[in-house]
């Protein structure tokens, strides 16, 4: 029982350590693209300077002032 639980502990540790390494080792291309777009929006001022609400100003522009 002791050996079994030790095996469980070691394998769980091994799994969590390798998972931590592999999870972040690949470049997140889609996330980078989103981040790039946000920064380009700001640098080129393609949308109103509202970094917290990127979609809202564009929608508001399209809608105009209609009520």
């Amino acid at each position: 029982m002791n050996a079994a639980s030790r095996f469980l502990l070691v394998s769980a540790l091994a799994v969590s350590v390798t998972a931590c390494v592999t999870i972040n080792i690949y470049f997140p291309a889609a996330a980078a693209e989103k981040a790039a777009d946000r920064i380009i929006d700001e640098v080129w001022q393609l949308r109103d300077a509202a970094p917290d609400a990127p979609a809202a100003p564009a929608a508001a522009d399209a809608q105009g002032e209609t009520k």
Binding site: L8, L9, A12, A19, I23, K34, A35
Partner: peptide
């Protein structure tokens, strides 16, 4: 140990979920 293992698994799932959202720190 079973309980501990469950906690580790839950942590891994949580980590996977955070990664799936995939936001780059900028």
């Amino acid at each position: 140990f079973t309980r501990w293992f469950a906690v580790v698994l839950f942590g891994l799932l949580l980590g996977g979920a955070v990664q799936a959202q995939g936001n780059l720190e900028v």
